[in-house]
Structure formats: C-alpha cells, structure tokens
Amino acid sequence: MGLEEKLPSGFLLTTVEQASGWVRKSSVFPATFGLACCAIEMMTTGAGRYDLARFGMEVFRGSPRQADLMIVAGRVSQKMAPVLRQVYDQMPNPKWVISMGVCASSGGMFNNYAIVQGVDHIVPVDIYLPGCPPRPEMLMDAILKLHQKIQGSKLGVNAEEAAREAEEAALKALPTIEMKGLLR
C-alpha cells in the first residue's frame, strides 16, 4: 500500500489519481494465462502484425507476482478453477481481469459438467470480451477500454467511495430475467 492511498480527498488526491492512472495504464503487464483457443489469438495479438507493443504491454509475464492484468483466455474447467484463483491471488494490487472469449465469460457453448460457467464465479472481471475466439482487434479494443478504466480509477478515500457506489448499484440492478424488451 503506497503513500498515495493515504492522501486526503480533494484537489491533491484527484491530481495524483490522474497521474497514477496515466502511469498505470501506460505500462500494463499481462500475466500469461492462456488456456485454449483464445490463447492463440492472444499470442497473435502480441506478435508482429497486431503488435501489442504499441500499447506498452508486449511483455507477458510468466510470474503472476510481476503482472497486474490477467487475460483469462479460454474455457476454465472445474479442475483449473482453483489454480486460476491462486494465480489471481498471487498478483499484487492493483490488478485487473479481462475475460477473453465467450467460454471464459459465460461458459459459452460448453454448458456442461466440466466447465465453469463464467470466470466471474471465481475472480472479479473488469472487461467481458465476446467472440469465439475474439479477433486480435477485439482484444485490443478491450485492452484500450480497460486503459480508459484504469485512467479513471480512484485512490484512497475516493476509491472506497467508488467501491461503495458500485456495490449499491449492483445490489439495485435488475436481474436479467426480470428485464423487459427484446430477447437478447
């Protein structure tokens, strides 16, 4: 926990928030968490044509202790779930999770005994990325959206306030089945 988390709310904190957000989003270190087909597309994104280096994150860290972004790329089996949680727990704060592909997001077409029906049962997810597998462009779009989110992230007392608001909003949110409108 750094000094920045102890700052009083107000002008100083918001200024530090902007600076730290900018720094954090500019050098995200993803952990290599390739599981299935999506992992190949994730590697493709890191390779020549799509060149993730343009966004300052071409270096995938083998050790979760050196990473702050986990891209869950592929289907998570019941056997892999505890491992995934352990890897997530080993990552230092602040950390983010992209659920890449439909299998990681919701179980997808593998609605069966072996697959965890959405990685959000195990770890909190920041960005859900649809597709089977998503194209590298889609992964980059998800990463850029995450960058925006990181830029806007709060610190200290503001972070506590933001967490409280998020929780209240989540508690008030309507379950999907009670929603009206088109079936989608």
Binding site: C37, F110, A114
Partner: peptide
C-alpha cells in the same frame, strides 16, 4: 485434464451437423 471440456459428452446433445462446431474446438490448431 486442466482443460477438460466435456466436448465428447456435449456432442451427444446436438445433431450430427452441429457436431462439427464442437469437434473443431478440440485441437484448436
């Protein structure tokens, strides 16, 4: 077994043509 997906079981609940969408995801390379 860390990527066991139950594809063979899932196939038993889809018709023969739909089976290709499952088998294609076995060895995805």
């Amino acid at each position: 077994g860390y990527l066991h997906t139950g594809i063979e079981k899932n196939l038993e609940f889809r018709n023969w043509t739909q089976g290709t969408t499952f088998v294609t995801r076995m060895d995805y390379l």
